[in-house]
Design a protein around this nucleic acid. Structure first.
Lengths: 350, 350
DNA sequence: TCTGAACGTGAATGCGCATTCACGATCGAC
DNA sequence: GTCGATCGTGAATGCGCATTCACGTTCAGA
C-alpha cells in the first residue's frame, strides 16, 4: 500500500492532479473512463490514483450528477414478521446480489409502524436514493402511489394495491395455490380445507382465490366453513388449525397459505391425535427451509425469492435509466414440491 | 399537500429563502435549529418549507459537514448461512431500530465472497458512511483492522480476531455453553458429547471451550472423541451427529453449538431410533424460532440479538462522536431456556 | 450620553466533483 | 501550402449546503 495511512483526509482529485502534473479535469476523465485521454497520461494518472489511495467522494459526485447510485429497500412491516420468515430474507439476498453486481448501494429502510412510514416520503425525497423497492405490502398502502407521484421510481414485490400504477414482480400465488389444492384433490381427499393468510395482503387473498378455483374446477363446493384465517405466523397457524378442527372434525386435507403457519398447524394436528399424512394431508406455501424441518417434511409451493429480488432490481433500473412511464408486470412461476406431509409421491428435488 | 407535485426538481434552500424573503443563511439556521433566529422569522420560514415541500439535500450537506449520517452494516459471509439463521436477521432488526431512532441510515453490504470483500475497503473510504458494523466474522478477517487503520470507525458483533484493536459486543458464549453442559451433567447424563461449531469462528471456539470447562468443573474427562464438528448449518449438524453416533454409540447427551445444527441432529437421532430426551438429551444454542418447531421442543441457550444490535449502534456512535480511541468490550449474558429436549424441568418462559 | 457586548441577519466562501467552453496542436484534404 | 476538422487538455462554473465574517441594531452599564 501507499503513503496514506492514519487519520488523514482522503485524497482529492486536485491532489491526484498535481501529483500527476495534469489538471483536475483530466483526472476526472480518467476516473470516469472518458476515452479522450492520451494513453500515456492515463497511465500516469492511474498510478498516482493507486499511490495516493484516491477514491471519488460520493457526496460530491452525487451533488453534481444527481444520481446517488443507491436504491432503498423499504419494508413496511412490524419487523417480527419479516424476520421470522426466511422468504423475505431471501428476497433481500437476491436484491443485494443484483445491486452488488451493478455497484449500487442498498439502503435498508424498515418502517416499524405507520408513523415511521410517514417519515419515509420526505426522507426519500432528499436524493438519498435513485429509486426504491418495496415489498410485503399490507392492504392499500398509499406509499408507492405517493412516491411515484413525486417522481420517485418505485417497484413493488408482490401485487401493489389496486389502482396504483407501478411496476411489480409477483409470484403466481393463484396458480400455486391452485396446484397445491388440486394435488390434494387428486390424491382422493374429500374434505379439503384451507388456512388462509391475512386478507389485507394480496398474497393472502390470491392464495385463497387459487384454493377456491381448484375446488370449483373439481366440482367441489367451496364452503366458507372450510376456511380459517391466520396472519402467516406460526402462532396464528396454530389457532386457525384448532378452530378448523373444531368446526370440521371430518377434514382430511388442508392447504396452508404459508409454511410458518403450516408448522403450527402440524403441531396442533399432532396434539389432536391426527396422523399426517394418513389422517390429514397438509400442503404449505413458500417452500422455506422450515419445510424440511417439520415432521413429516412439508409438501410446499416453491417460490423463487432470489429471482424475485433480481427481477426487482432489473425492473427498477430499467425505470431509472429509461425514465419511461411504462408499467411492467412480471409474474414468476411456482413449483409444487411434494414431500411427506401430503401422502403423495415425493418429487425428485425435494 | 402543497404545490409541489410531478417531476420537478426538489426545492432548494435558496428558493425557500426568497419565498420567505430572507437569506439562504437564515433558512439554513432554521433547518438546523440554530437558536439565533427571530421567532417570527422562524415561523415564516417554516411555513414556506412546508409549503414548498423542502427537504435538505443530503449530498450537499454531507459534502460540507463531512458526515453522512449513515452507517454500513457489513456481513462478510456466503449469504446462505446468514439467511438460514434467524439470529443474524434479529441482530439486523436491532441495528435498524436503533438507527431509525437516531435518524441514521442503514447501508447493507453483503460481501458474498473474498473478492467482493476486498472491494469494500476503498468503497467505504468514499465517505459513504460514518462508521461500520461488522458481524459474523470468520477466522482472522483482516478487514476490521485495516479499516480502523484508515481511520474508519468500526465495531464488531462477536469477538474480533486476536490482535485487532476494535470495540465489540459479544454474547457470553463460554458462559452459555458452560451452563448448557452443566445442566446436562446435573441431569445425570454420563456421556455428554458436543457438536461444535466451525473452529475458525470465535463463537465456535468459545462454545467448545465452555463445554470443556463444564466437563472439567464436574471432574469428567474431556475426551476429544466426544466432539464432532459442524458449520452451524442443519446439514453439517446431521453429518456430525451421525459421525458421533458411530464413534460413541453409548452417548446419552449432546450439547449442540447452534439450533440449526441441533434440528439436524434431532432428525438423525430419530432415524437412528434414539428417543429424545429419554435416550439422548439435547441442548442447542441461540434459542432461535426453530427451537419451538422441533419435536420435542429444543432446550437452548438464549442470546439477545436485538440488544446486541442496539449496543452495536450505541458503541459505534460513541466512537463517531467522541472520536476517542478507547476500545470497549460489551459482553451480553445468556439464559438457558429449558424445554422438552433435555428431559429437565421446563423453565417458565419457554 | 457614550461604550461595548449581545443579537439577528446577509454576503461570501468552499466542500469535491462533472461538465462546458475555449484553446492550441495535429492531421487530412484540397 | 492553406483551411477546416479532430483531438487532448485546462480554466471556469455551479451543484446545495454549512459556516465564517462583517455589519447594523438593540440594550445594559457606566
Amino acid at each position: 500500500m501507499g503513503q496514506r495511512v492514519g487519520y488523514g483526509r482522503a485524497a482529492t482529485m486536485g491532489e491526484v492532479a498535481s501529483a500527476a502534473g495534469v489538471s483536475q479535469s483530466t483526472v476526472s476523465r480518467v476516473v470516469n473512463g472518458n476515452p479522450r485521454v492520451d494513453p500515456e497520461v492515463r497511465r500516469k494518472v492511474e498510478r498516482e490514483i493507486r499511490r495516493l489511495g484516491y477514491v471519488p467522494n460520493m457526496a460530491a459526485r452525487t451533488l453534481v450528477t444527481r444520481r446517488s447510485d443507491s436504491v432503498g429497500v423499504v419494508i413496511p412491516e412490524p419487523a417480527s414478521r419479516i424476520f421470522g420468515d426466511p422468504f423475505f430474507a431471501q428476497v433481500l439476498r437476491g436484491i443485494s446480489g443484483a445491486l452488488n453486481a451493478r455497484r449500487q448501494r442498498l439502503v435498508l429502510l424498515i418502517a416499524e409502524d405507520q408513523e415511521q412510514e410517514r417519515w419515509l416520503a420526505p426522507y426519500l425525497m432528499a436524493g438519498h436514493v435513485d429509486g426504491i423497492i418495496m415489498y410485503s405490502l399490507h392492504g392499500d398502502d398509499p406509499l408507492p402511489g405517493e412516491l411515484r407521484q413525486r417522481g420517485i421510481q418505485v417497484v413493488v414485490g408482490g401485487l401493489p394495491p389496486r389502482g396504483t400504477r407501478v411496476s411489480y414482480v409477483d409470484t403466481d400465488n393463484v396458480g400455486g395455490a391452485h396446484a397445491a389444492t388440486s394435488h390434494l384433490i387428486r390424491l382422493g381427499r374429500k374434505v379439503v380445507t384451507t388456512l388462509a393468510g391475512p386478507q389485507d395482503m394480496i398474497a393472502g387473498v390470491d392464495r385463497l382465490a387459487g384454493y377456491r378455483e381448484a375446488l370449483r374446477t373439481a366440482g367441489l363446493p367451496a364452503d366458507e366453513r372450510l376456511v380459517a384465517y391466520g396472519q402467516f405466523t406460526r402462532e396464528s397457524g396454530m389457532s386457525a388449525m384448532s378452530e378448523l378442527l373444531a368446526r370440521r372434525p371430518d377434514l382430511d386435507a388442508v392447504f396452508v397459505a404459508s409454511d410458518l403457519m403450516a408448522s403450527g398447524a402440524l403441531e396442533v394436528l399432532r396434539s389432536a391425535g391426527r396422523r399426517v399424512p394418513r389422517d390429514v394431508a397438509v400442503v404449505g406455501f413458500d417452500d422455506s427451509p422450515i419445510a424440511l424441518m417439520t415432521d413429516p417434511p412439508l409438501t410446499s409451493v416453491r417460490q423463487s425469492p432470489e429471482v424475485m429480488g433480481r427481477e426487482l432490481v432489473e425492473l427498477l433500473n430499467g425505470h431509472i435509466e429509461a425514465r419511461d412511464q411504462v408499467i411492467r408486470k412480471v409474474v414468476l412461476d411456482t413449483q409444487l414440491i411434494v414431500r411427506g406431509s401430503c401422502g403423495g409421491k415425493p418429487s425428485t428435488n425435494a
